[in-house]
Design a protein around this nucleic acid. Structure first.
Lengths: 156, 156
DNA sequence: TATTACGTACAGAATAAACTGTACGTAAAA
DNA sequence: TTTTACGTACAGTTTATTCTGTACGTAATA
Protein backbone atom coordinates (compact mmCIF):
# COMPACT_ATOMS: atom_id res chain seq x y z
CA UNK A 1 0.00 0.00 0.00
CA UNK A 2 1.36 3.39 -1.02
CA UNK A 3 1.46 6.43 1.22
CA UNK A 4 -1.28 8.11 -0.77
CA UNK A 5 -3.57 5.14 -0.29
CA UNK A 6 -2.88 5.16 3.42
CA UNK A 7 -3.81 8.79 3.59
CA UNK A 8 -7.00 8.18 1.68
CA UNK A 9 -7.98 5.34 3.97
CA UNK A 10 -7.34 7.42 7.06
CA UNK A 11 -9.33 10.28 5.58
CA UNK A 12 -12.27 7.99 4.91
CA UNK A 13 -12.26 6.32 8.31
CA UNK A 14 -11.73 9.39 10.40
CA UNK A 15 -14.29 11.39 8.46
CA UNK A 16 -16.83 8.68 9.20
CA UNK A 17 -16.20 9.08 12.91
CA UNK A 18 -16.57 12.81 12.69
CA UNK A 19 -19.79 12.59 10.76
CA UNK A 20 -21.17 10.80 13.80
CA UNK A 21 -21.04 14.16 15.54
CA UNK A 22 -23.35 15.81 13.11
CA UNK A 23 -20.90 17.26 10.64
CA UNK A 24 -21.78 17.03 6.98
CA UNK A 25 -19.60 14.76 4.85
CA UNK A 26 -17.73 17.69 3.37
CA UNK A 27 -17.17 19.38 6.72
CA UNK A 28 -15.84 16.11 8.03
CA UNK A 29 -13.49 15.54 5.11
CA UNK A 30 -12.29 19.09 5.33
CA UNK A 31 -11.58 18.90 9.01
CA UNK A 32 -9.77 15.60 8.59
CA UNK A 33 -7.67 16.99 5.79
CA UNK A 34 -6.68 19.97 7.89
CA UNK A 35 -5.95 17.74 10.84
CA UNK A 36 -3.64 15.54 8.80
CA UNK A 37 -1.89 18.46 7.17
CA UNK A 38 1.17 19.69 8.98
CA UNK A 39 0.70 23.24 7.82
CA UNK A 40 -2.15 25.73 7.71
CA UNK A 41 -3.96 25.83 4.38
CA UNK A 42 -5.66 28.38 2.17
CA UNK A 43 -9.15 28.15 0.74
CA UNK A 44 -7.71 27.53 -2.71
CA UNK A 45 -5.55 24.65 -1.52
CA UNK A 46 -8.50 23.05 0.21
CA UNK A 47 -10.71 23.53 -2.80
CA UNK A 48 -8.24 21.71 -5.02
CA UNK A 49 -7.77 18.93 -2.49
CA UNK A 50 -11.50 18.42 -1.94
CA UNK A 51 -12.40 18.94 -5.58
CA UNK A 52 -14.89 21.61 -4.63
CA UNK A 53 -15.37 25.29 -5.33
CA UNK A 54 -13.74 27.99 -3.26
CA UNK A 55 -17.18 29.20 -2.23
CA UNK A 56 -17.94 25.80 -0.79
CA UNK A 57 -14.68 25.94 1.14
CA UNK A 58 -15.54 29.34 2.48
CA UNK A 59 -18.92 28.32 3.84
CA UNK A 60 -17.73 25.00 5.21
CA UNK A 61 -14.71 26.51 6.91
CA UNK A 62 -17.01 29.04 8.50
CA UNK A 63 -19.09 26.22 9.96
CA UNK A 64 -15.99 24.61 11.39
CA UNK A 65 -14.89 27.94 12.82
CA UNK A 66 -18.27 28.41 14.48
CA UNK A 67 -17.89 25.00 16.09
CA UNK A 68 -14.37 25.88 17.24
CA UNK A 69 -12.91 22.96 15.40
CA UNK A 70 -10.70 25.11 13.25
CA UNK A 71 -8.64 28.23 13.82
CA UNK A 72 -7.67 31.01 11.52
CA UNK A 73 -3.95 31.52 11.51
CA UNK A 74 -1.88 34.49 10.58
CA UNK A 75 1.49 34.21 8.92
CA UNK A 76 3.79 37.07 8.06
CA UNK A 77 3.77 38.01 4.41
CA UNK A 78 0.91 35.72 3.51
CA UNK A 79 -2.09 37.54 2.18
CA UNK A 80 -4.57 34.70 2.01
CA UNK A 81 -6.44 33.41 5.01
CA UNK A 82 -4.89 30.34 6.55
CA UNK A 83 -6.72 27.73 8.57
CA UNK A 84 -5.64 24.84 10.69
CA UNK A 85 -7.50 22.18 12.64
CA UNK A 86 -7.53 22.46 16.40
CA UNK A 87 -5.24 19.70 17.52
CA UNK A 88 -6.86 18.64 20.78
CA UNK A 89 -9.48 16.37 19.39
CA UNK A 90 -11.22 15.27 22.56
CA UNK A 91 -11.36 18.72 24.04
CA UNK A 92 -12.73 20.22 20.86
CA UNK A 93 -15.45 17.66 20.48
CA UNK A 94 -16.37 17.81 24.14
CA UNK A 95 -16.97 21.50 23.81
CA UNK A 96 -18.90 21.60 20.64
CA UNK A 97 -20.82 18.37 20.98
CA UNK A 98 -21.18 16.85 24.43
CA UNK A 99 -21.47 20.08 26.38
CA UNK A 100 -23.94 21.41 23.87
CA UNK A 101 -26.00 18.27 24.12
CA UNK A 102 -26.03 18.32 27.88
CA UNK A 103 -27.28 21.90 27.77
CA UNK A 104 -30.01 21.06 25.34
CA UNK A 105 -31.14 18.10 27.42
CA UNK A 106 -31.32 20.28 30.51
CA UNK A 107 -33.30 22.90 28.70
CA UNK A 108 -35.83 20.40 27.49
CA UNK A 109 -36.06 18.73 30.84
CA UNK A 110 -36.98 22.07 32.31
CA UNK A 111 -39.62 22.68 29.69
CA UNK A 112 -41.22 19.35 30.53
CA UNK A 113 -41.04 20.00 34.26
CA UNK A 114 -42.76 23.28 33.67
CA UNK A 115 -45.51 21.45 31.79
CA UNK A 116 -45.92 19.04 34.64
CA UNK A 117 -46.44 21.83 37.14
CA UNK A 118 -48.85 23.59 34.88
CA UNK A 119 -50.86 20.40 34.51
CA UNK A 120 -50.96 19.79 38.25
CA UNK A 121 -52.30 23.27 38.86
CA UNK A 122 -55.26 22.62 36.59
CA UNK A 123 -55.77 19.13 37.88
CA UNK A 124 -58.90 19.78 39.91
CA UNK A 125 -60.70 21.16 36.92
CA UNK A 126 -60.52 17.86 35.10
CA UNK A 127 -61.39 14.26 35.70
CA UNK A 128 -58.46 12.88 37.67
CA UNK A 129 -58.48 9.52 35.95
CA UNK A 130 -58.07 10.95 32.48
CA UNK A 131 -54.66 12.15 33.54
CA UNK A 132 -53.43 9.07 35.29
CA UNK A 133 -51.62 7.48 32.39
CA UNK A 134 -50.78 10.77 30.79
CA UNK A 135 -48.85 12.29 33.66
CA UNK A 136 -47.08 9.02 34.26
CA UNK A 137 -45.75 9.20 30.72
CA UNK A 138 -44.67 12.76 31.31
CA UNK A 139 -42.82 11.67 34.43
CA UNK A 140 -41.06 8.94 32.46
CA UNK A 141 -39.93 11.56 29.99
CA UNK A 142 -38.55 13.76 32.72
CA UNK A 143 -36.73 10.81 34.29
CA UNK A 144 -35.31 10.00 30.91
CA UNK A 145 -33.97 13.51 30.51
CA UNK A 146 -32.51 13.39 33.98
CA UNK A 147 -30.65 10.18 33.25
CA UNK A 148 -29.34 11.53 29.98
CA UNK A 149 -28.21 14.68 31.73
CA UNK A 150 -26.27 12.65 34.30
CA UNK A 151 -24.62 10.60 31.64
CA UNK A 152 -23.60 13.52 29.45
CA UNK A 153 -22.24 15.33 32.47
CA UNK A 154 -20.12 12.30 33.27
CA UNK A 155 -18.56 12.43 29.83
CA UNK A 156 -16.57 15.59 30.50
CA UNK B 1 -53.66 26.21 29.13
CA UNK B 2 -55.93 23.50 27.80
CA UNK B 3 -55.10 19.82 27.83
CA UNK B 4 -54.65 19.78 24.07
CA UNK B 5 -52.12 22.58 24.27
CA UNK B 6 -50.22 20.74 26.96
CA UNK B 7 -50.11 17.68 24.77
CA UNK B 8 -48.86 19.69 21.83
CA UNK B 9 -46.13 21.29 23.91
CA UNK B 10 -44.98 17.95 25.24
CA UNK B 11 -44.98 16.53 21.73
CA UNK B 12 -42.84 19.37 20.49
CA UNK B 13 -40.33 19.26 23.33
CA UNK B 14 -39.93 15.54 23.53
CA UNK B 15 -39.65 15.18 19.78
CA UNK B 16 -36.80 17.67 19.84
CA UNK B 17 -34.94 15.53 22.31
CA UNK B 18 -35.46 12.45 20.23
CA UNK B 19 -34.28 14.13 17.07
CA UNK B 20 -30.98 14.55 18.86
CA UNK B 21 -30.55 10.82 18.47
CA UNK B 22 -30.69 10.93 14.73
CA UNK B 23 -34.38 10.36 14.14
CA UNK B 24 -36.05 12.41 11.43
CA UNK B 25 -38.65 14.92 12.60
CA UNK B 26 -41.51 12.69 11.53
CA UNK B 27 -40.05 9.59 13.16
CA UNK B 28 -39.61 11.58 16.33
CA UNK B 29 -43.14 12.98 16.31
CA UNK B 30 -44.54 9.58 15.58
CA UNK B 31 -42.65 7.91 18.38
CA UNK B 32 -43.67 10.61 20.82
CA UNK B 33 -47.28 10.30 19.81
CA UNK B 34 -47.21 6.55 20.35
CA UNK B 35 -45.44 7.00 23.65
CA UNK B 36 -48.09 9.39 24.91
CA UNK B 37 -50.95 7.28 23.67
CA UNK B 38 -52.28 4.81 26.18
CA UNK B 39 -53.34 2.35 23.51
CA UNK B 40 -51.72 0.77 20.47
CA UNK B 41 -52.53 2.56 17.23
CA UNK B 42 -53.14 1.70 13.59
CA UNK B 43 -51.43 3.22 10.58
CA UNK B 44 -54.61 5.06 9.70
CA UNK B 45 -54.94 6.59 13.13
CA UNK B 46 -51.35 7.75 13.04
CA UNK B 47 -51.74 9.14 9.55
CA UNK B 48 -54.66 11.26 10.63
CA UNK B 49 -52.88 12.44 13.78
CA UNK B 50 -49.67 13.33 11.93
CA UNK B 51 -51.43 14.70 8.89
CA UNK B 52 -49.44 12.41 6.63
CA UNK B 53 -50.21 9.64 4.20
CA UNK B 54 -50.55 6.04 5.25
CA UNK B 55 -47.55 5.18 3.11
CA UNK B 56 -45.46 7.62 5.07
CA UNK B 57 -46.66 6.00 8.29
CA UNK B 58 -45.78 2.58 7.00
CA UNK B 59 -42.20 3.48 6.14
CA UNK B 60 -41.61 5.51 9.27
CA UNK B 61 -43.03 2.85 11.55
CA UNK B 62 -40.75 0.37 9.87
CA UNK B 63 -37.75 2.54 10.74
CA UNK B 64 -38.86 2.70 14.35
CA UNK B 65 -39.35 -1.05 14.40
CA UNK B 66 -35.85 -1.59 13.01
CA UNK B 67 -34.49 0.55 15.82
CA UNK B 68 -36.51 -1.41 18.37
CA UNK B 69 -38.27 1.71 19.54
CA UNK B 70 -41.68 0.39 18.66
CA UNK B 71 -43.41 -2.98 18.88
CA UNK B 72 -46.11 -4.51 16.80
CA UNK B 73 -48.97 -5.65 18.94
CA UNK B 74 -51.66 -8.21 18.32
CA UNK B 75 -55.18 -7.84 19.58
CA UNK B 76 -57.97 -10.38 19.18
CA UNK B 77 -60.45 -9.52 16.49
CA UNK B 78 -58.47 -6.53 15.17
CA UNK B 79 -57.41 -6.95 11.61
CA UNK B 80 -55.18 -3.91 11.24
CA UNK B 81 -51.63 -3.81 12.48
CA UNK B 82 -51.25 -2.16 15.85
CA UNK B 83 -48.13 -0.47 17.13
CA UNK B 84 -47.04 0.84 20.46
CA UNK B 85 -43.92 2.62 21.69
CA UNK B 86 -41.54 0.66 23.84
CA UNK B 87 -42.02 2.12 27.27
CA UNK B 88 -38.53 1.84 28.72
CA UNK B 89 -37.05 4.95 27.24
CA UNK B 90 -33.54 4.77 28.55
CA UNK B 91 -33.10 1.11 27.77
CA UNK B 92 -34.41 1.54 24.25
CA UNK B 93 -32.17 4.46 23.46
CA UNK B 94 -29.15 2.83 25.02
CA UNK B 95 -29.58 -0.12 22.74
CA UNK B 96 -30.23 1.63 19.52
CA UNK B 97 -28.00 4.63 19.98
CA UNK B 98 -25.22 4.41 22.53
CA UNK B 99 -24.37 0.76 22.02
CA UNK B 100 -24.43 1.22 18.28
CA UNK B 101 -22.15 4.22 18.54
CA UNK B 102 -19.71 2.43 20.79
CA UNK B 103 -19.54 -0.40 18.25
CA UNK B 104 -18.94 1.97 15.39
CA UNK B 105 -16.20 3.78 17.27
CA UNK B 106 -14.48 0.49 18.04
CA UNK B 107 -14.68 -0.58 14.45
CA UNK B 108 -13.12 2.61 13.22
CA UNK B 109 -10.47 2.56 15.88
CA UNK B 110 -9.47 -0.87 14.65
CA UNK B 111 -9.34 0.31 11.07
CA UNK B 112 -6.99 3.10 12.07
CA UNK B 113 -4.82 0.78 14.15
CA UNK B 114 -4.56 -1.49 11.18
CA UNK B 115 -3.41 1.48 9.12
CA UNK B 116 -0.79 2.32 11.66
CA UNK B 117 0.67 -1.18 11.57
CA UNK B 118 0.65 -1.20 7.82
CA UNK B 119 2.51 2.09 7.77
CA UNK B 120 5.11 0.92 10.24
CA UNK B 121 5.84 -2.14 8.13
CA UNK B 122 6.65 0.02 5.13
CA UNK B 123 8.50 2.55 7.17
CA UNK B 124 12.01 1.64 6.03
CA UNK B 125 11.09 2.16 2.42
CA UNK B 126 10.40 5.83 2.96
CA UNK B 127 12.10 8.85 4.39
CA UNK B 128 11.52 8.58 8.10
CA UNK B 129 11.07 12.30 8.63
CA UNK B 130 8.23 12.59 6.18
CA UNK B 131 6.22 10.42 8.48
CA UNK B 132 7.05 12.03 11.76
CA UNK B 133 4.14 14.42 11.92
CA UNK B 134 1.87 12.17 9.97
CA UNK B 135 2.02 9.16 12.26
CA UNK B 136 1.71 11.39 15.29
CA UNK B 137 -1.61 12.64 13.92
CA UNK B 138 -2.69 9.08 13.33
CA UNK B 139 -1.83 8.25 16.91
CA UNK B 140 -3.90 11.19 18.13
CA UNK B 141 -6.81 9.89 16.16
CA UNK B 142 -6.49 6.46 17.70
CA UNK B 143 -6.26 7.96 21.19
CA UNK B 144 -9.36 9.98 20.44
CA UNK B 145 -11.27 6.87 19.44
CA UNK B 146 -10.07 5.10 22.56
CA UNK B 147 -11.33 7.88 24.79
CA UNK B 148 -14.66 7.99 23.02
CA UNK B 149 -14.96 4.25 23.37
CA UNK B 150 -14.34 4.45 27.12
CA UNK B 151 -16.91 7.17 27.52
CA UNK B 152 -19.61 5.46 25.51
CA UNK B 153 -19.01 2.24 27.41
CA UNK B 154 -19.48 4.15 30.66
CA UNK B 155 -22.87 5.32 29.52
CA UNK B 156 -24.46 1.88 29.71
C1' DT C 1 -3.82 56.85 -5.70
C1' DA C 2 -4.66 52.99 -8.89
C1' DT C 3 -4.52 48.21 -9.26
C1' DT C 4 -4.67 43.64 -8.01
C1' DA C 5 -6.15 39.70 -5.26
C1' DC C 6 -8.95 38.02 -1.69
C1' DG C 7 -13.27 36.25 0.69
C1' DT C 8 -18.06 35.98 0.59
C1' DA C 9 -23.21 37.35 -0.67
C1' DC C 10 -26.33 35.93 -3.68
C1' DA C 11 -29.01 33.64 -7.42
C1' DG C 12 -29.65 29.79 -9.76
C1' DA C 13 -28.47 24.67 -10.94
C1' DA C 14 -27.73 20.06 -9.44
C1' DT C 15 -28.50 16.66 -6.17
C1' DA C 16 -30.75 14.38 -2.41
C1' DA C 17 -34.61 13.53 0.78
C1' DA C 18 -39.36 13.33 2.02
C1' DC C 19 -43.87 12.55 0.72
C1' DT C 20 -48.06 11.05 -2.04
C1' DG C 21 -51.18 8.15 -4.82
C1' DT C 22 -51.80 4.23 -7.44
C1' DA C 23 -51.48 -0.49 -7.94
C1' DC C 24 -50.69 -5.00 -6.40
C1' DG C 25 -49.97 -9.27 -3.47
C1' DT C 26 -51.92 -11.32 0.44
C1' DA C 27 -54.74 -12.66 4.11
C1' DA C 28 -59.08 -12.24 6.46
C1' DA C 29 -64.22 -12.23 5.94
C1' DA C 30 -68.38 -13.52 3.70
C1' DT D 1 -64.60 -19.56 -3.65
C1' DT D 2 -65.36 -14.75 -4.04
C1' DT D 3 -64.99 -10.46 -2.06
C1' DT D 4 -63.14 -7.06 0.83
C1' DA D 5 -59.57 -4.68 3.40
C1' DC D 6 -54.91 -4.31 4.60
C1' DG D 7 -49.83 -3.03 4.17
C1' DT D 8 -46.27 -1.83 1.15
C1' DA D 9 -43.47 -1.49 -3.50
C1' DC D 10 -42.81 1.74 -6.72
C1' DA D 11 -42.89 5.86 -9.71
C1' DG D 12 -43.36 10.37 -9.80
C1' DT D 13 -43.70 15.00 -7.37
C1' DT D 14 -42.68 18.22 -4.12
C1' DT D 15 -39.55 20.14 -0.92
C1' DA D 16 -35.02 20.87 1.12
C1' DT D 17 -30.04 20.75 0.79
C1' DT D 18 -25.67 21.30 -1.37
C1' DC D 19 -22.91 23.22 -4.68
C1' DT D 20 -21.28 26.48 -8.40
C1' DG D 21 -20.16 30.83 -10.83
C1' DT D 22 -20.63 35.60 -11.04
C1' DA D 23 -20.29 39.90 -8.96
C1' DC D 24 -19.00 42.97 -5.48
C1' DG D 25 -16.85 45.18 -1.26
C1' DT D 26 -12.53 45.47 0.93
C1' DA D 27 -7.85 45.37 2.01
C1' DA D 28 -3.12 44.69 0.56
C1' DT D 29 0.29 45.96 -3.04
C1' DA D 30 2.58 48.90 -6.32
Amino acid sequence: MKEVEHTQQIMIQFSKTIEMFGLTPLEARLYTYLFLSDKALTLDEMGIAMGKSKTAMSTNIRSLLDLNLVTRVWRKGVRKDLYEANSQLLKSFMNFYFKKRADQIIQQKEALEHMKESIEENKTAIEADDFGKFTSQLESMIDFHQELENRYKNMG
